[in-house]
């Protein structure tokens, strides 16, 4: 039987984020899909559930808040992690009300996001 892999969706309009994050997380044994537009990401979550969603809040022409609201609506047990620039930290804190698991300020270390994801994963497994 194949081992279950925790699935992660990444949404950030800055391609560098997915480009760096995807291989790093895959190396750790996660199943990762990355998107740079919320349109595609929204389409994808209508098709399937992800265990963990990592999203930016403020993107050009995209509202990360809308995206994460939709994710929590459809899959209340999906853990959402918000990554955002320093300028939008206040908004990020607001997002806690939407049931966001945690947030990280950019720039962050690969190790830091890996820790947050591991905690989100542990919470899911525990629940």
């Amino acid at each position: 039987m194949e081992e279950y892999k925790t699935s992660i969706l990444i949404l950030d309009d800055e391609p560098i984020v997915s480009k760096r994050l995807k291989p790093s997380l895959e190396k750790k044994g996660y199943e990762v899909e990355a998107f740079t537009t919320s349109k595609e990401a929204l389409e994808r979550i209508e098709e399937r559930q992800f265990d963990i969603v990592v999203t930016d809040l403020k993107m050009e022409g995209v509202d990360g808040m809308q995206f994460l609201t939709r994710v929590k609506e459809k899959y209340p047990d999906t853990e959402v992690i918000v990554i955002t620039g320093f300028a939008t930290m206040a908004t990020a804190k607001e997002s806690f009300n939407k049931g966001v698991f945690d947030f990280l300020a950019k720039p962050f270390k690969l190790g830091e996001i890996a820790d947050v994801i591991a905690r989100a994963e542990a919470k899911k497994k525990g629940s």
Partner: peptide, 16 residues
């Protein structure tokens, strides 16, 4: 430090 390869940073960070 960001050039050390251990960080994820974007253009926004460089500008600020």
């Amino acid at each position: 430090d960001k050039l050390s390869g251990d960080y994820i940073f974007d253009e926004q960070y460089i500008q600020s």
